[in-house]
Amino acid sequence: MAASHLLCGRNLGVVPLLRCAQRTFASQTLGELKVTRILKENFPRATTIKVTDISGGCGAMYEIHIESEEFKDKRTLHQHQMVNKALKEEIKAMHGLRIVTSVPKH
């Protein structure tokens, strides 16, 4: 594989890097906006929700940081299961997902 190509999603095959990199500085991709909206709906008490497309902008892999009171007194595994449940349909199209959850410090 040439260095100028990037594997961009399991169903998309090899895509030229320039076609995949759709981001501009300080902007969010449509996928990031959609995932953020879903998380805001499912975690209304969240104080922080940060969604980053870590696949170069093509939506194959995301990193999510979410801080919410809904996670209080729950183990990390259960917190991550809550996020997975909220994103159940979107996860079907993803290659991977990194989740970082926390409870706000008072």
Rank of each mutant, 00 (worst) to 15 (best):
T47W: 02
Y62K: 05
Q81C: 05
S27G: 00
L39R: 04
G31H: 10
F43C: 11
Y62A: 12
E69I: 03
Q28F: 06
N42S: 14
A86N: 10
L77Q: 13
I64W: 00
V35E: 06
S55H: 07
A46T: 06
E41S: 11
T47I: 09
V51D: 01
C20H: 04
K40C: 08
V51A: 03
T24R: 14
L39K: 02
S27P: 00
T29Q: 04
G31L: 06
E41V: 03
I38D: 03
K88P: 01
F71D: 04
S55W: 04
V83A: 11
E69L: 08
E41K: 10
I64T: 03
S27M: 09
K88L: 14
A21C: 03
A60L: 01
K74V: 07
R75Q: 13
Q22P: 01
K72M: 09
R23N: 11
C58V: 08
F71P: 00
H65Y: 08
G56E: 11
G59M: 04
E63T: 08
F25D: 02
E70H: 08
A60H: 01
T36G: 10
L77T: 07
E69F: 02
M61V: 04
F43Y: 10
L39S: 11
Q79N: 09
P44F: 03
G57D: 06
V35N: 04
R75M: 10
N84E: 09
H78L: 10
A21G: 07
L39M: 10
Q28D: 06
K34D: 08
S68I: 02
K88W: 01
I38R: 12
K50Q: 15
M61S: 14
Q28M: 13
K40E: 15
R23L: 05
G31I: 03
T76A: 13
I66S: 01
D73G: 06
N42V: 06
R75H: 09
E41H: 05
L87M: 01
T48I: 13
E63P: 02
E70I: 00
K88I: 02
F43P: 09
D73H: 13
L39Q: 09
G57T: 08
I49L: 00
G59Y: 00
E32I: 02
S68E: 04
Q22M: 09
K88V: 07
A46I: 05
T36N: 10
H65W: 03
E69H: 07
L77H: 02
G31M: 05
P44M: 10
N42H: 07
R23C: 11
L39A: 11
G59H: 06
L39Y: 02
E69Q: 12
I64V: 08
G56K: 00
N42D: 09
G59F: 00
H65D: 12
E63K: 15
H78K: 15
F43E: 14
K34C: 10
C20V: 02
E69A: 14
L30E: 09
F71C: 00
E32F: 04
K40M: 11
Q22Y: 00
G56Y: 02
K50C: 11
S68Q: 04
K34L: 06
Q81K: 13
H65S: 15
I64H: 05
K34N: 14
K74A: 08
K85L: 12
Q79C: 14
S27Q: 12
A26H: 02
H80C: 15
K88A: 15
K85Q: 14
T48G: 04
E32Q: 07
